[in-house]
């Protein structure tokens, strides 16, 4: 077997209608070129996308689940941060 496994990459696809690339999954590849080609073969077989981004998984830094109380709970009771406390004039459409 190989002395070393190919590194893991995260794959992001932008669909035809989509404005942003969405995370669709991960795969193994030796380098970025192969990662893009593999992503094409693995994740766009059913016309899912028109653009591919790949990034080596080790370059993604995530928040720590242990921090989730301190990070996210404080926002739970601050409804005033949503712009919902005024009335929309009737002449304004498409809100």
């Amino acid at each position: 077997m190989n002395q070393s496994e190919w590194p893991l990459w995260e794959v992001f696809i932008r669909s035809k209608q989509g404005l942003d690339h969405k995370h669709v999954g991960s795969l193994h590849a030796a380098d970025a070129t192969m990662a893009v080609q593999n992503a094409r073969d693995v994740y766009t077989r059913r016309l899912e996308g028109v653009s591919i981004w790949v990034v080596e998984s080790k370059h993604i830094h995530a928040s720590n689940p242990d921090d989730s109380e301190a990070f996210f709970d404080p926002a739970a009771d601050k409804v005033y941060r949503h712009p919902t406390f005024y009335e929309v004039p009737e002449s304004i459409k498409h809100m």
């Binding site: 190919w6 795969l27 193994h28 590849a29 080609q37 593999n38 073969d41 693995v42 077989r45």
Partner: peptide
Amino acid sequence: PVLEQDLAMAN
């Protein structure tokens, strides 16, 4: 040899 190339060849 690897899943990704298995799919590539099937494609």
